[in-house]
């Protein structure tokens, strides 16, 4: 029994319209694409206004005058559209970049550098055989892949030790393969969700 819910029918139509591109570009796909962009843009505008109200205006209305600075910086972002005063937009951009870097850089060094090096240099022998194999693969992979990016000495790539960066290249290719495989699974994971929706919620045959 096919669903009688109008919302389900609309969702089913746009699901089929969006995926029809996989077969060939067509006007129904274009309609779905433009509708999605319109809806997403509308939603983004509403959420943007809500953010200004919740995280800016509400504070200002409660007497937190420092938020005037926030509004001024926000308005200055639009100066880039002005022929004469476009340079003013650099101030909020500088603030945003400085703020973003300041918030993340210490933690990034800790998480991406210190912790990863510590993990790589941990003892190769683990509690179980698979753990030991994993540790050895990680250790060999890191050393050989790093050697692939040493460009200051040509003989590292051509001499007796040339096999080390070659192993590194294979390690990276294996990593790219794993990444590609995961990407396929991820895309199918998204699409099968819509297939289940079509079969269960729309056509109601499963």
């Amino acid at each position: 029994m096919v669903s009688t819910d109008a919302q389900i029918w609309i969702a089913a139509f746009f699901t089929i319209a969006a995926t029809s591109y996989a077969f060939r570009d067509n006007v129904v796909f274009k309609f779905a694409e433009n509708t999605f962009i319109g809806v997403a843009a509308g939603h983004a505008i509403v959420m943007g206004i809500k953010n200004i109200r919740d995280y800016g205006w509400n504070h200002l209305a409660q007497g937190e005058m420092i938020y005037i600075v926030v509004f001024i910086l926000g308005i200055l972002l639009y100066a880039r559209f002005h022929d004469k005063y476009y340079w003013l937009y650099r101030y909020p951009i500088a603030f945003l970049v400085g703020n973003g870097v300041g918030i993340s850089i210490r933690a990034a060094i800790h998480s991406d550098f210190v912790k990863q090096i510590a993990q790589t240099t941990s003892p190769l022998i683990a509690a179980d055989a698979f753990g030991t194999i994993n540790n050895i693969i990680t250790f060999v992979g890191v050393i050989t892949a790093l050697s692939h990016f040493i460009f200051t000495r040509e003989d590292i790539h051509t001499g007796t030790l040339g096999w080390i960066p070659r192993v590194g290249r294979w390690m990276m290719l294996l990593a790219f393969g794993a990444s590609f495989g995961n990407t396929i699974m991820s895309r199918f994971g998204m699409y099968q969700g819509r297939i289940i929706f079509l079969l269960r919620d729309w056509l109601q045959i499963v």
Partner: peptide, 29 residues
């Protein structure tokens, strides 16, 4: 960065499969 590194909070993550290869090192470490 923010929950673990900055505040040492216990952290659980979930992501698309295509991101797993780049996020898994955080789990391994």
């Amino acid at each position: 960065y923010q929950a673990y590194s900055q505040y040492n909070k216990p952290l659980l993550g979930g992501c698309l499969s295509m991101m797993t290869t780049s996020i898994k090192p955080y789990y391994d470490s």
